[in-house]
């Protein structure tokens, strides 16, 4: 009989997992949507194409619980990671275009994946609904680096092609592609060294193994900047950001390099009814106005001006235009 002793916690854990996967609060089953039609009338699946615990997961779960509150229907968040998000996109498309299967998208990856490889979807297969957070990239050096500002850094890089090693979060990331454009369009050549994430890049910079990093300015990076161990040289968005004291790349002499911004947003399969898009767009805008939601997402990452379906589509088209030629080489 003692075997049940080892078995019990395991079985328990299995059932807990199953329950957790099946969704959280099932009690608010009634209520009508705020849109023109009566969408939604049943629970909504929100797919996160990345691992739980990451920044995309945080964005999805925060906006998911707000949607649930606003729309009065359960929002089931499901992580379907794999193939840089392609597995999750496929799962969303398989869920049908009735508006009850949505996905979080992470632009530019979502837009660039189908440009490089057959990943089972194209950029025509989904409709972006609204941006939730925008995380800029920052070019940073270690405290005490010989390059005090962007000018000094780029001057050295121009004079010594390939001599400076810059850590990037992966080869097909916007950071790596911006560095390629830096070389191709402006003749300033650095060696991009791909790492697997912020933790590894931070170690590489602090250990003096790379000269700089071009990194997502997520919370841990902001903390390092605050603590003084990172010195920011330049930021990637078209406009300066108020929480990082550095000029934009455009201001540093590279007006084209404004695309390396990670945008996490909501998307639905193409063919979804227009009123569903309108309802969701409006609800996300409402959610992003709530103080609690903004706090959870990180105040500084919520776009100052709401990015709805049209603006978001435009953003994706720009990325396809900028990176398409590089990726299809």
């Amino acid at each position: 009989m003692h075997q049940t002793r080892t078995a019990a916690p395991a079985l328990l854990a299995v059932s807990v997992l199953t329950l957790a996967a099946c969704g959280n609060d099932g009690d608010d089953a009634t209520g009508s949507g705020g849109g023109a039609s009566d969408y939604p009338t049943e629970s909504i699946n929100l797919i996160v194409p990345y691992a739980p615990g990451g920044p995309t997961d945080l964005a999805a779960r925060t906006i998911g619980s707000c949607l649930e509150e606003q729309l009065g229907q359960t929002v089931v968040v499901e992580n379907r990671e794999g193939a840089s998000g392609s597995v999750g996109m496929q799962a969303m498309l398989a869920g049908g275009d009735d508006g009850y299967t949505l996905s979080l998208i992470a632009v530019p990856a979502t837009a660039t994946n189908p440009l490089q490889e057959d990943v089972g979807y194209t950029n025509e297969d989904y409709v972006p609904i609204a941006a939730v957070t925008e995380i800029p990239s920052v070019l940073a050096v270690e405290e005490g680096s010989p390059y005090e500002d962007a000018a000094a850094f780029f001057e050295y890089a121009e004079a010594n092609p390939g001599a400076l090693n810059v850590g990037v979060p992966g080869t097909t990331t916007s950071q790596a592609m911006e560095l390629r454009r830096l070389a191709e369009e402006y003749g300033v050549e650095v060696t991009a060294v791909p790492f697997t994430g912020n933790a590894e890049m931070t170690t590489a910079l602090l250990g003096g193994n790379v000269d700089a990093v071009f990194i997502n300015a997520s919370q841990d990076v902001l903390e390092n900047i605050e603590a003084g161990s990172f010195t920011p040289l330049a930021v990637s968005p078209p406009e300066p950001v108020d929480y990082i004291d550095a000029p934009t790349l455009a201001e540093s002499g590279f007006p084209e390099l404004t695309s390396s911004v990670s945008v996490f947003g909501l998307a639905a399969p193409a063919g979804v009814p227009d009123d569903v898009v309108t309802t969701l767009e409006g609800t996300v805008e409402e959610c992003l106005g709530q103080e609690e939601v903004r706090q959870q997402l990180g105040e500084q990452y919520v776009p100052d001006e709401f990015v709805g379906t049209d603006a978001f589509s435009e953003r994706i088209d720009q990325i396809v235009e900028a990176y398409g030629p590089i990726l299809q080489e």
Partner: peptide, 8 residues
Amino acid sequence: FDQISLFD
């Protein structure tokens, strides 16, 4: 082998 499941 063009299997998305094997991309990672």
